[in-house]
Each structure stands twice: as C-alpha cells, then as structure tokens.
C-alpha cells in the first residue's frame, strides 16, 4: 500500500511539473498580450511599449518560466497585469469560495447519486430503473445554463424564495449567507447528478451480478440491508473515483453557475483573466487548480485502492479470510 501511494505521489509530482510548463507556454503562445488589451484603442505606440516593459513582457519566455516556477514554489505567483494585485491574494480569497461551493455540491451529488444509483441498479430493467434512467439522461442532455436559468425562474422570479444573485457584504464568507448558496449549489448538483447516478448504477449492476451478492441473497439478505451492507461497499471504489474526477473538474469548471449567480469563485476569475490576457493570473490560478485537481484524484485513487479488495495488502486479505 505504501509503495502504491508513493508511486502515485511521484507520478502526481511529475505530472504537476509537466502541467506547469504546458500552462506557462500555452498562455505565452496566445497571440497578443495584456499590453494590447490594457492600453485601449486610443493609446499611442510608445504608451503601449511602456506598458509592455512594465509588465515584463519584453523578456524571453524560457527565462520568465524559470523565474515564475521558482517564485511559485515560494508562494509568489506574481501580480495581475490588470491592476497589479498579487495573484496569491486573489487565489486566497476566491479559492475558499470555490471549495465551499464545490464541496457542498459534491456532497449533494454523492448522497443523491448513491441513493438513485442503488435503487436503479438493484432494479435494473424494471419500471423504477427506467424512470430514473430517463431522468438522468434528461439531466445530462440539458445544458448547464438552461438548468441554472430554470432555477432562477422557478425559485427566484416566481417563488421569490431564494436570492437570484450572490451578493456578499465585504469581509463575509459564503458560509455566513447560506440562502445565497442554495441556487448555485442546486445548479451544480443538477448538472452533475445525471452522470454520477449512471456511474453508480453501472457499478451496482455489475456488483449485483457477482457471486458474493448472489451468496448474500441466498443467505436471505434483501432490500436496504443488502444494498447498504453488501452492494454499496463493493461498488464504492469506482463511485469514489468518479466523484473525485467530478470534484476536480467542478473546482475551476463551475463557470456557468458562477457567472449566472454572480458567485465569487475561481472559475469566473480564470475566465476573466483569459479574456483580458492576464497571463500571470491565468498561470497562477491554473497552477493552483491543476495542483488541487491532481491532489483530489490522488486521494480518490488512494481511497479506491483501500476499498478495492484485490489491491489490498495480502496481510489484510489474510486477516479478512481469517474472520468468521
């Protein structure tokens, strides 16, 4: 197990280095730079050149990559070319918000997808399964902005139940305003629920046909007890890996929801930075997102490894076999 963890850890670190280079040089390769955007249409040539020099855009790219990577390791991610704010400061304020949003959404997805996936998987082919499958397919087919807009219309415009946009007073964190979290979290849950449910259902279906479950059924187990105690533990590994992939993707990818509900997360900040050629911001936020995505996947892999009977250390297996 320790070797498994170590191998995965080293792979993740190498991956991280590779990603940092890809990230840096792909933002470099984009045509144009912040000087063109920042200066505006009425700037003179010398004013443009001056801005370029001030932003350090006149140095060679490789030299800038090495400096940037070195600084990043010490926690200095550079400054935004838009107004000179340190990237690390922006990251600190936005990243926590995204973690709150995505954490709640993933928790919601986990609960609902597990419930629906178990119900559907254990009744594969029957009416309940077909109803749930149509629901999940519909959810997958609906674009995220449509789901989110539907939520605004139904729960904000018509019902007046929840605020349509997130407006947090200065200094407050999203935790202090749960009412403003409801619509963005629900939007993300609906967006991810379809795929997650199908994932769990597929795992449950394959587990349900296994000899172990057959044995449990013959032993008289059924219903909720069979699902909770026998099917779920066996189907959990692929489920957790699926959720990890989803959580990693949502962390920077909840752009539609963040934009529509004005949620101050890291995704909308990244999109703004790309639009305005704010290279330092794109690189800094990208690096943090890539790092946390790798971390989540790494932890997901470890958990799944622990749950997967076949990859457990032999001593565990012996202990299990010895148990009554």
């Amino acid at each position: 197990m320790i070797r498994f963890g170590l191998t995965r850890g080293v792979t993740a670190a190498a991956m991280m280095l590779l990603l940092s280079a890809v990230l840096f040089f792909s933002t470099e390769a984009l045509p144009g730079d912040a000087a063109g955007v920042v200066a505006g249409a009425d700037a003179t040539e010398s004013e443009r050149a001056e801005i370029r020099k001030r932003l350090g855009l006149d140095e060679p790219a490789v030299a800038r990559y090495v400096t940037w990577l070195g600084d990043a390791l010490t926690g200095d991610l550079g400054r935004s070319s838009a107004a000179g704010r340190p990237v690390a400061e922006v990251l600190a304020s936005r990243f926590g918000n995204s973690v709150v949003l995505v954490g709640l959404a993933v928790a919601g997805i986990a609960v609902l997808a597990t419930t629906f996936g178990l119900v559907a998987g254990l009744r594969a082919g029957r009416l309940g399964d077909r109803l749930l499958s149509s629901m999940t397919v519909t959810l997958i087919a609906l674009p995220e902005f449509l789901l989110a807009t539907g939520l605004v219309v139904a729960l904000a415009h018509q019902g007046g139940m929840f605020p349509a946009v997130s407006i947090f007073p200065p200094g407050d964190s999203p935790w202090q305003h749960p009412d403003m979290l409801v619509l963005p979290v629900t939007g993300l849950v609906l967006g991810g629920l379809g795929v997650a449910t199908r994932l769990v259902r597929a795992a449950v279906v394959s587990v349900a046909e296994s000899p172990a479950i057959e044995q449990a059924r013959l032993d008289g187990e059924s219903g909720v007890r069979l699902a909770w105690s026998y099917v779920l533990p066996a189907a959990a590994a692929p489920g957790i890996q699926g959720l990890a992939v989803m959580a990693a993707g949502l962390l920077g990818g909840s752009l539609v929801v963040e934009t529509l509900f004005n949620y101050p997360g890291v995704g909308s900040e990244l999109a703004r930075a790309v639009t305005y050629r704010d290279a330092a911001m794109v690189q800094g936020l990208g690096l943090a997102l890539a790092g946390s995505a790798l971390l989540i996947l790494f932890v997901g892999d470890l958990l799944a490894g622990l749950l997967n009977v076949r990859s457990r250390p032999a001593s565990w297996r012996r202990a299990e076999r010895g148990a009554p």
């Binding site: 605020p163 349509a164 946009v165």
Partner: peptide, 18 residues
C-alpha cells in the same frame, strides 16, 4: 457598489430587489 459581471445576473438583481 455591487460587482455583477453578467448582464443577465444584473437584471435579475434589479428584478429581485437586490
């Protein structure tokens, strides 16, 4: 002064009394 980047979200804020 509220920062609401998306034009639709701004209109929603006005309609909802935010």
């Amino acid at each position: 002064l509220l920062s609401i980047g998306d034009a639709e979200a701004r209109v929603n804020a006005l309609r909802e009394g935010q």
